[in-house]
Structures are given as structure tokens and as C-alpha cells.
């Protein structure tokens, strides 16, 4: 298969070498010296094998995502996202607290006000660690879930773009949500 690609590449080069855009009646097939070392393992000519492999990979990914549960991953990420929103509150509270401390240092707070400020600040500091770690978890989990779903959608698009002619007609070209991908895999026989 790789030799086939090299032949086509050589064919392309031999034609392109003659004046471009000129009608070249007979394409002289000169097996050009293999230009530079271009034999990567994956030089996909979307032959049946590779197409089938991509189909099977997409199927596995789709099933794996289904097993984890699209909904569950999403709702987990959402919960973590809510926790992360708490971090914004932290920022706002910090601004308020620091302005109070500035007032204190300017001698503008009474003893009672100072006691309240001290208590608020202690509570605030105790609050911080939980909220920051929640944010880190939330963004990484969300990113992971999004990446997996993007990958699934991209594979599905490749399957659509390279579907055998006889099956192309039945496909609507949409494969962005789990149901559409499920239908697509079914239609293509994976």
C-alpha cells in the first residue's frame, strides 16, 4: 500500500514537473527516485483496512463513552463547575476583606468591627483550600470529557467523509451528538 502511495506521489511529481496547468495528454509514468524518506507507518489511503479500523475504533470509543455515561460525565463536570464558581466568590470576598483591613490600618474600625473582621478573615482562609482544588478537578475532568467527545465526533466525520459511495446517500452528514453517532455507526455497519 505504501508503494502504491509512492507511485502516485511520483506520478504527481512527474506531471507537476511539466508546465503546470498545461494539458498533458499522456502521463508518462516515470518511477521517480523515492523522494526523501517519506514512509511513515500511517500514510492512509483510506483503503478498506484503514477505513474498517477507524470504524472499529470509533465504535469502541463510542461504547466506552456510553459505558461511562455521557450524562454522568457531563453532570459530574457540571457539579464541579458549580464548585468552581465558588472560587469567584472567594475573589470577591477577598476584595471586601482587604478593603476592611485597609480601613483598620487607617484606624477607622472600632474594636467590635475589628473582631468581626478577624472572624470573617479566619473563616475565609479556611474556605480557600477546598474551593481551589475543586476548580482544578473541574477543569481537568471537563477537559477530558470534552476531548473524548471531540475525538469521537472527529472520527465520525472522517467516517462520513470517506464512506463508501453506496452508503453515502443514507447519511445526513451530522455526527455531533451520541445519538447521531450511534446511528452513523449502525448505518456503516460498525
Amino acid at each position: 500500500m505504501s508503494t502504491e502511495d509512492d507511485d502516485l506521489e511520483a506520478l504527481f511529481d512527474s506531471i507537476a514537473a511539466t508546465s503546470p496547468a498545461a494539458p498533458a495528454p499522456a502521463a508518462a509514468e516515470t518511477p521517480a527516485p523515492a523522494a526523501s524518506a517519506t514512509s511513515t507507518a500511517s500514510s492512509p489511503s483510506m483503503g478498506g483496512d484503514i477505513y474498517a479500523q477507524i470504524g472499529q475504533t470509533t465504535r469502541k470509543l463510542h461504547d466506552a463513552l456510553r459505558d461511562i455515561g455521557h450524562d454522568r460525565v457531563s453532570s459530574m463536570a457540571d457539579k464541579l463547575k458549580n464548585a468552581a464558581d465558588g472560587v469567584n466568590t472567594l475573589g470577591n470576598n477577598a476584595t471586601q476583606l482587604s478593603s476592611k483591613w485597609v480601613q483598620l490600618m487607617d484606624g477607622k474600625l472600632s474594636v467590635d468591627e475589628f473582631k468581626v473582621l478577624a472572624a470573617d478573615t479566619k473563616a475565609y482562609l479556611q474556605d480557600v483550600p477546598g474551593k481551589t482544588s475543586a476548580e482544578i478537578d473541574s477543569s481537568s475532568v471537563k477537559k477530558l470529557a470534552d476531548t473524548a467527545q471531540q475525538l469521537e465526533a472527529q472520527l465520525a466525520q472522517l467516517l462520513i467523509a470517506n464512506a463508501p459511495e453506496d452508503k453515502k446517500k443514507g447519511l445526513d452528514g451530522n455526527a455531533s451528538n451520541p445519538d447521531q453517532i450511534k446511528a452513523l455507526l449502525g448505518n456503516l455497519g460498525f
Binding site: D5, L8, L11, F12, D13, I15, A16, P20, A21, A22, P23, A24, A27, T40, S42, S43, P44, S45, M46, I54, L158, A161, N162
Partner: peptide, 22 residues
């Protein structure tokens, strides 16, 4: 396809799907 692309003045062709390496 490849013959037509070359004759029309393409500088190169790539077959879908392809990796970043290709």
C-alpha cells in the same frame, strides 16, 4: 484525481484522512 490535480497546477495533494505527520 491526482493526474488532474497535477495538470491543473496543484503544488501537492494529500489523501483524507491524514495525520499531522503526513
Amino acid at each position: 484525481n491526482i493526474v488532474e490535480a497535477a495538470q491543473s497546477g496543484a503544488n501537492g495533494y494529500i489523501v483524507k484522512p491524514f495525520t499531522a505527520t503526513t
